Simulated assay, not measured.
Amino acid sequence: MTEIAAAPAAVAGKHRARPTPIVPPANVAGRALLTVIAIMTFLASLTLGAVTLVADTAADWQSQIAREVTIQIRPDDGLDMADALGRIEALARATPGVTGAQTLDDAATARLLEPWLGSGLDLDDLPVPRLVIVSIDESSPPDFTALAAAVRASVPQASLDDHRAWVSRLVSMAHATVLIGVAILALVMVATILTVVFATRGAMSGNRHIIEVLHFVGARGTFIAAEFQRHFLRLGLLGALAGGVAALLVFLLIGRWTQANQATPEADQISALFGSFAIGWTGYGGVLFLIVLIGGLTAVTSRWTVTRQLAAIDMLSPVER
């Protein structure tokens, strides 16, 4: 807390009055503002981290379209599944633009079905389609139409799925989620600004007589505003730091939990949607920038509010004062 004399040296005469704080010392209102800023920063950091995760995942989905396609073989009476898988895999490997093909084995297929059908599946007793994963050369992809026709000609029960339809819908949903996150972030910022405005006005009301005396005896408005700015900058940085660190801890804990439970279906679903649930350096840098931004925004908003209030005092008549 910054303390100054009750009047500037030019007006104090032969002696200075006992230092009196312009801004009220830490009290219930100050602690409440710090808590509100911490909560706002926590929510804003969570939103920013979620937006980063969704944007990175959408980019991965789009990249996967260019890297990999799937050939599905549906079981049928009289179909030798092992022979069909071998023919499709050989056909895919021989196609220009394909860098590799691999049949999804029984263990991997059972793991994909485990969240819905449970563990201990015997695929020989179930009419489960089998998959061949085809890796694509991104710089020179194959002709998918020709490949799909060749697959159907070799095995009528087989079909090519390039995942473009559902991945396109997921990417569109991800982009919409990012826009919603940005809108929420903007609303949190507006709410923070309004909170600081009301807190600054309350602080001025609590010490109005000191502020008016200083102002009328010659203290510049910029000097008074600077005192409030330093006070609220400290509150803003402390609150923003607490909220930002709490949000980073949440992401770290969820990321650790995901890594520790990679073999479970729940973790697999989270990994499919959000990757490793790590926001990366971009996310950490964004949260740090958010902490500094909210601290600076708190200080600037407080200074602007004080300047406006002092201008309003100047416009009052002596009777109204």
Rank of each mutant, 00 (worst) to 15 (best):
R201G: 13
T177Y: 10
S168C: 05
L194G: 03
I180H: 09
G202H: 14
A191P: 10
S168T: 15
R208N: 06
A191F: 14
L179M: 13
V197E: 08
V182M: 12
F198L: 12
S205W: 09
R201W: 10
F198C: 00
H175C: 02
F198K: 01
N207G: 05
H175N: 11
T200L: 07
A191M: 11
T195G: 03
H175L: 01
V178K: 12
A186Q: 04
M204N: 03
N207K: 10
A183V: 10
L170S: 06
H209F: 11
I211G: 01
L194F: 11
T195H: 02
I184Y: 06
A183L: 14
V190P: 01
I193K: 00
M173F: 08
S168H: 12
T200K: 00
R169K: 07
M189C: 07
T177R: 11
M204W: 09
S168R: 10
I211M: 11
I184G: 05
S172F: 05
I180F: 14
V182F: 13
T192L: 14
V178Y: 06
I180A: 15
V167A: 03
G202K: 08
R169F: 05
N207F: 04
T192A: 14
H209M: 10
V167Y: 07
I211Q: 08
V171M: 03
I180T: 12
L170Q: 11
H209G: 07
A199P: 07
T177M: 14
V188K: 02
L185P: 01
F198V: 13
H175V: 10
R169N: 09
V182Y: 11
V167L: 11
R169E: 13
H209W: 10
V167T: 12
T200M: 05
T177W: 13
T200H: 05
S168M: 04
R208F: 07
G202Y: 11
G202W: 11
V197K: 05
I210A: 11
F198N: 05
H175F: 02
R169M: 05
T195Y: 02
V167N: 02
A199Y: 09
V178M: 10
T192I: 06
I210M: 10
A186P: 06
V190A: 14
L194V: 13
I184S: 01
V171S: 01
V171C: 04
G206P: 01
I210Q: 12
A191L: 15
G181T: 00
A183N: 04
A183Q: 03
L170A: 09
T200Q: 07
A165I: 12
S168L: 03
H209K: 12
N207Y: 06
R208Q: 13
V196Q: 00
V196C: 04
A199V: 08
G206D: 13
S168N: 12
T195V: 02
L170W: 06
L170Y: 01
V196P: 06
A183K: 05
L187C: 08
V197N: 02
I184V: 15
T192N: 14
R169I: 02
M189Q: 08
I211D: 02
I193P: 00
T195S: 15
A183G: 11
F198Y: 11
V188C: 08
V190K: 03
I193F: 11
L170G: 03
S172H: 09
G181D: 00
I210V: 13
